[in-house]
Nucleic acid binder design. Structure first.
Length: 269
DNA sequence: ATGGTTGCGTAGCAA
């Protein structure tokens, strides 16, 4: 089973590039982030006519996640547990029925968290957007632990808005005070990983120079000034089945690209 | 370097 995560930065803007990538890359399941659309406005029929099951969890203007699948989906749930008042659409789950077995997939769009407010001691404050990010990550940790406890294959796929280590940025010094790379952000990410997850990409490819996002601004793509923030975390039963993982970096150089590129895994499932 | 670029939605925010 080939499973990918792709922050498309708006379904309307990617109405040509996304089907083109799906046709070329031939994934079985895709977690999409930043659909920037309400469910009713998502071009469901276009993808259904191409053979995809479509499950969306959208909102007006911002955020929004979805799952496209050629394989059967069961028990779809929307929203990250832990705060019924949270209006932001950033989490969707489904059970994917593979040929050799099922897995539980969570598609996620973790809050960016900028701008960060700093206290007089120079440490970041857990207020505003950064506070929301850290709170959201604590909720995600609880949900991730619950999913692990099922002892079924689990994949947490999405835009984490986390640069896990300095080697995951072309210019780490430019991100040192940013919500994507602050020590508190990285520690919250590690607390989730350390529950027992494997970063699929790092299980396959060591070393610097591998990115999944290049800003539209200041020629970041042309300078290869990128960061690796789109991740697939595998529970142990999914990690056992990992055959390969890659980043489709070429997608960033095509017509009207997203600022993110797809990251994919091949699982023996 | 306080710019730069894109998307949504049609102003200004988010990234």
């Amino acid at each position: 089973m080939k499973l990918a995560t792709f922050n498309i930065n708006g379904i309307k803007a990617r109405i040509e590039a996304l089907p083109r990538w799906l046709d070329a890359a031939r994934p079985d399941v895709v977690a999409l982030q930043e659909i920037k659309s309400v469910d009713e406005a998502f071009p469901r029929a276009l993808f259904e006519d191409l053979g995809w099951r479509v499950e969306t969890h959208g909102q007006k203007g911002f955020n929004g996640v979805a799952i496209l699948s050629r394989l059967p989906l069961e028990d779809v749930t929307r929203g990250l547990p832990g705060d019924d008042e949270d209006p932001q659409a950033r989490w969707i789950e489904a059970t994917v029925i593979g040929e050799k077995g099922a897995l539980r997939l969570a598609g996620l769009y973790l809050p960016n968290g900028n701008p960060v407010e700093f206290g007089a001691d120079g440490r970041p404050l857990a207020t505003g957007k950064y506070g929301y990010k850290l709170n959201w990550m604590a909720r995600m940790q609880a949900r991730a632990a619950a999913l692990l406890a099922t002892e079924e294959p689990v994949v947490l796929a999405g835009d984490y808005n986390i640069i896990p280590q300095d080697e995951d940025a072309a210019r780490p010094e430019a991100w040192a005070q940013d919500a994507l790379a602050l020590p508190e952000s990285r520690a919250a990410f590690r607390r989730i990983v350390n529950l027992g997850f494997t970063d699929a990409f790092r299980a396959r490819v060591p070393g610097p120079g591998h990115y999944s996002f290049w800003d539209y601004q200041a020629g970041a793509w042309e300078k290869n000034n990128g960061i690796r923030i789109d991740h697939l975390l595998l529970g142990p039963q999914a990690a056992d089945r990992l055959r390969d993982c890659g980043i489709d970096r070429a997608a960033r150089g095509e017509d009207k690209p997203s600022d993110h590129v797809p990251v994919w895994i091949d699982l023996d499932l």
